[in-house]
Design a protein around this nucleic acid. Structure first.
Length: 128
DNA sequence: CGCCTGACGAAAC
DNA sequence: GGTTTCGCCAGGC
């Protein structure tokens, strides 16, 4: 690392700017731990990061989730009621539901069926 | 530099 | 019991 340059810039919300995305990275990392067929909530991730006071930022971090490599399964992240709040941000709302169904998660009326059953708590699973 | 917005959450009304 | 508002934090304009 002579130059020590980190070109890891998803250019999500910042096309041109230096952003460590420290907060965002944490969100991505936790979100990547979500096993297939499982879902979690923004607040759960936020609580895991310690930013439970601002679950909003978690969702925001997802803004560059699909731009992050490896891509973060943002489709497995829903709001606290199991509603596919971020489906409108996938470019196509059908994609999120389709993916969840494909992974074995039943989605009805834009919300996860048996959300409590497929709910994956990062704080609990990761032992936070 | 200040105001607004934003993929949440929980409480207040 | 549904709707509205505040709170939180950070970034965009």
């Amino acid at each position: 690392m002579a130059t020590g340059k980190k070109s890891a810039k998803p250019t999500a919300v910042k096309p041109s700017g230096k952003r460590d995305e420290n907060f965002f990275e944490l969100v991505y990392q936790v979100a990547r731990q979500i096993p297939k067929g499982r879902v979690t909530s923004y607040g759960a991730i936020a609580a895991c990061l310690g930013t439970k006071l601002s679950a909003r930022m978690v969702g925001w971090a997802m803004n560059g989730a699909d731009k992050t490599r490896p891509a973060v399964p943002a489709h497995r992240v829903v709001n606290r009621v199991g509603l596919l709040s971020g489906k409108h941000h996938f470019g196509k709302p059908d994609e999120m539901e389709k993916r969840l169904k494909k992974e074995g998660i039943k989605v009805k009326d834009d919300k996860v069926v048996d959300f409590a059953k497929v709910f994956w708590d990062p704080v609990k699973e990761l032992g936070f």
